[in-house]
Design a protein around this nucleic acid. Structure first.
Lengths: 84, 84, 84, 84
DNA sequence: ATTGCGGTTTTTGCCC
DNA sequence: GGGCAAAAACCGCAAT
């Protein structure tokens, strides 16, 4: 009845399974990295740093970076708008 | 997590209804505002402004504002950390 | 210098400023409404309701009934394919 | 002057820098993984899968079975209370 | 016309 | 439980 191997209700089950498993694998790795980051925060705390301040610093650095890129984008947009 | 209130299947139906309706009402208003904003973008476009640039400008203004507040917070945190 | 007051680089600066400010004003209001909604969710939580389920209910009320049915069917299909 | 190199305002600057940089490095990697995941969703979409339902499946697989049951029950309860 | 895409907002999950 | 970072849903636009 099935034209293709393991075709369940019109769904390519193997393909679906592969996709799901690969995503789950990558999410595992991501979770591991999050753990590593948490460890560093822990270490920082042990070294006497205030993690709240630390997070704020990281956030500001991120924002600066983002703002920089945004400005590039804006500049680019202006140039396009002015056809330069 | 079990709901404590009484009535329908252990649920305070009237209270729930009130909550749901108030939220839906506010969401209506929010949607209306979103519409107003869209209208202004439309007007801007008609006036010859590039809405993409406009959005970028608004975003940058928002980011500047946020960064300013962040820095205040950071300063405050440092002062607390130093007990000044 | 300019035929119209304050025409900077071929851009109607006043017009632009008006647009930006009106949008920012409306966004303020929108943010305020979002805050009000958050307050009601808070109230609901205090009254013992599960806010996550509450959100689900609101979503269901919004959703087109047909689309809903369709999604249920698809979900079922995928789950069968994965034998979950 | 200082017992250790670069001790600024009582803060071990080098140590802090190391911490910040290591965290930022790990966050980079995390972002890269997120990108990989997005690619797979893209692939799934191209293969004709409904990504929204796919995400739902992933969520179900993650979720504790008991919690799941509980949520379904609550949702049903609320709907009855609202007669939806 | 329709369909993918980018970006915005909302929701969820996490850590403190 | 409350605030913050990440994920997910939503929406308008564009390009074909």
């Amino acid at each position: 009845m099935a034209a293709k191997p393991k075709d369940v209700g019109g769904i390519a089950a193997d393909r679906l399974r592969s996709i799901v498993e690969r995503i789950e694998r990558l999410e595992e790795e991501k979770k591991a990295l999050a753990g590593d980051i948490r460890d560093i925060f822990q270490e920082a705390k042990s070294a006497g740093f205030d993690t709240k301040v630390l997070r704020q610093v990281l956030r500001l650095r991120r924002m600066d970076q983002a703002a920089l890129q945004e400005q590039d984008t804006l500049l680019d947009l202006y140039r396009r708008a002015l056809e330069v």
